[in-house]
Design a binder for these strands. Structure first.
Lengths: 310, 310
DNA sequence: AGCATGTATTAGTTTAATTCATACAAATCA
DNA sequence: TGATTTGTATGAATTAAACTAATACATGCT
């Protein structure tokens, strides 16, 4: 009794504040976690979490949380060392291609966190836009690319990172702010402010406006802050990931609305050559990115896809 | 993959040097351990132990051994803290009654080790010999007694500690040293040197000599070293636990032979009132004693008896 | 060589973990 | 306030993992 699994559950419970959310994060059902928690509490005769909303750790829960925080990193470190020993210390390389502007928000901290554990892995960024990012893998010009769909492709493995909502941005007091959510037609009048990227990378255009035949005037800006500024100055509408605009919404600079009744959700995935994707330093990089994203980005959701084994 | 169970296995393998011995210590079969080790090695693609005799840890094995040594104690500490929280810090008490002289050899270090983890538990030794040691429990004059058999007794729980061999001791060059093992009759000629304890506590007398109707002249000595000295001085024979005479044998002071063809094996058990036996500080004491014994006493064996749950 | 000791492997059994389908409780909405 | 949403608990059924038994195989010993 009292296994590492329990410690991971307790960590997840503490961070998510709910059995349901912890369960999805751990790729289990709520029922499984409930059973586990009840069993553990019963075994030691202590309550670990007060069943409030959000769940709050009791002193006993805190004790185990502390244990988790000192033990789990040690386990991970050993796992990495084993991988190094197994692969005989042959160094790895990660040339990363990213096409989404906002990705840098979480990619940079992710790379920093990763470097702490895998200092010997040489990391590099492959810049610019490419007609076929997956070709970079085949041509051996990149080892990992971040893409927005899992297009089945021979010799290439995909791993889901997370999914997020794209929000329509408008100035405070804009007439459209009266609506609960925007539809394609609502974009027809105002200019659309976007990053300078091809349409296939702009989800609103590709998945909402183009199918509906709506083609608004365009205006480009390099930086997120610039786009927000233009929107606030009533120069047009924009569509950005929820996590990227969160701070501006909180300060009331602009207003955001979902796109479509259920919102416009996009996913992000990594792609790598099969041979690379199975190596530990590589998998660990993807895991670190995912973890970093969930730690720092508000409102993102897990994305089903691959088995989640260790 | 890579669980605490694995770490415990690796620790046991390192300490026992064999799958078979590690298995009995962990109350598993050799097969189970072989499966585990093979699976673990396969999973990480490393060899953890060279299959030599004794088993020797590879660098990867050493890495996990190191992990085990930093992680397992933390787990134990947390478990104890949970027990303290669960029982609301009500302090425990351990009045210990021991009737076997040689027991002090491992009891003292055991108590020291225990005190480090449970400083709040008040420990005391109940001295002297008692006609019925289990009565001490009923009369609430002791909380734990160390006995040599699991006599079913209402309200009392027993836990096995270990089993050990009693060896017959004789002077170097003694005619009986020519025999591979001694029988009851061999004790008839020489005086028998024992501790000053009742016959029921002297296993040779109770289980070998008395049943055979052999009743040799007696001579008493308080200390093990004194008994050995008398034997070496050709004043008679003695029967002592193998672990207690090991150092004297190594230096050639005396000679030892098994008693009976299969040897005379005795067991030691703890007994406690049921209500105490289930409390964590109590169980931990017994576990500590057992662990301490296996760490310091040569030639002792695990003793089957109770389920071995945590 | 023949025995003793220890490890590996296969198949079968047992035990534990997880899900499914609901019931139940608490907060939120209209 | 009743209806609805959101989240947790529970029992039974399912699935997966761990363990044992039996036995083959390897190695050292006298």
């Amino acid at each position: 009794m009292l296994t590492l699994k329990h410690l991971r559950v307790i960590e997840a419970l503490n961070e998510t504040g709910s059995l349901t959310r912890a369960a999805t994060r751990l790729h289990l059902t709520q029922s499984a976690l409930s059973h586990q928690l009840v069993a553990l509490e019963g075994h030691y005769g202590v309550v670990l979490f007060e069943r409030s909303r959000p769940l709050r750790a009791t002193p006993a829960g805190m004790r185990l949380l502390h244990l988790a925080q000192e033990v789990l990193p040690k386990m991970e470190a050993a796992r990495r060392d084993l991988a190094r020993l197994a692969e005989d210390n042959q160094p790895g390389r990660l040339r990363i291609a990213v096409e989404c502007h906002t990705c840098y928000d979480w990619l940079m901290p992710g790379m920093d966190a990763y470097r702490a554990h895998w200092p010997e892995v040489e990391m590099d960024l492959v810049g610019g836009f490419h007609t076929d990012p997956l070709a970079l893998l085949a041509e051996d010009r990149a080892d990992l690319v971040i893409v927005s769909e899992m297009a089945r492709h021979k010799g290439v493995s995909f791993s889901p990172l997370f999914r997020y909502e794209m929000l329509a941005l408008m100035a405070t007091g804009h007439p459209l702010a009266a609506k609960a959510y925007l539809t394609a037609k609502d974009f027809a009048q105002d200019p659309l402010i976007t990053y300078p990227a091809p349409d296939r990378l702009l989800d609103v255009v590709r998945r909402v406006l183009k199918p509906a035949g709506v083609n608004p005037e365009r205006r480009l800006a390099e930086l997120t802050i610039a786009i927000v500024q233009l929107v606030a100055s009533r120069k047009g509408l924009a569509a950005l990931p929820a996590w990227a605009v969160q701070p501006f919404l909180e300060r009331g600079y602009v207003v955001a609305r979902p796109i479509g009744k259920k919102g416009l959700w996009s996913g992000l995935y990594t792609a790598a050559r099969d041979s690379d994707a199975e190596r530990t330093f590589h998998r660990d990089f993807v895991d670190t990115l995912r973890e970093q994203a969930f730690m720092t980005l508000p409102g993102i959701e897990p994305l089903e896809g691959l088995p989640h084994a260790r």
